[in-house]
Nucleic acid binder design. Sequence first.
DNA 1: CTCCAATTTCGAAAAGCATCTAAATAGATT
DNA 2: AATCTATTTAGATGCTTTTCGAAATTGGAG
Lengths: 95, 95
Amino acid sequence: MGIAETMKAVSDHQRRSILILLKGGRLSAGEIVSQLGDLSAATVSYHLSILKKADLVREERQKNHIYYELNTSVFEQLLLWVGQFTGGADEEENL
Amino acid sequence: MGIAETMKAVSDHQRRSILILLKGGRLSAGEIVSQLGDLSAATVSYHLSILKKADLVREERQKNHIYYELNTSVFEQLLLWVGQFTGGADEEENL
DNA sequence: CTCCAATTTCGAAAAGCATCTAAATAGATT
DNA sequence: AATCTATTTAGATGCTTTTCGAAATTGGAG
């Protein structure tokens, strides 16, 4: 947790692709592997573990699948961080 | 240009520190070096070049100083990208 | 309990990144 | 033009990250 971890997680292209995929609803690891197309299952698993540690996705076990879905709450924090540079959100006008 | 470049630029701790410093107004490279305290001028220059390439800062030459300042417009794009996951901004409801 | 399918973990290789010192450049001042 | 100061570029080094294939794990089905 913390902006550093979130930023690192989101700074990788493949991980951003995974996040975009998950916008369409939850998917199993295997489904993510085939939708991405060009990455081994091991690699996808690695990326998922990073997204999970950063709390950007949540995992849910069911049958013999593991489903992943977005955890939108952490994106709010990211939004706050970025917002401080755009006059959005945050704003502590005390200088 | 492009979200990839922006994300990479912003994913580094030192570069984020530089951006925060620049929130307080423009600074020369040397001023940034001393405010950061623990980084060589060469390294700071390296980070500035990345922020510049990503268009997050703008440089302005004056006397024998080079001043850097935030370019807020690219942060808006970042905001849009993040916003797509939070129900903020963007929103193309067509499924 | 054995077999299968889905996923993760391990170990290694390759690529990329942050950092430094030293050398080069750019511009202002003498 | 010689020099001083501010900054960048170059080259080297160590650290981190991404990726893979193979082996281990986990849980369900026969």
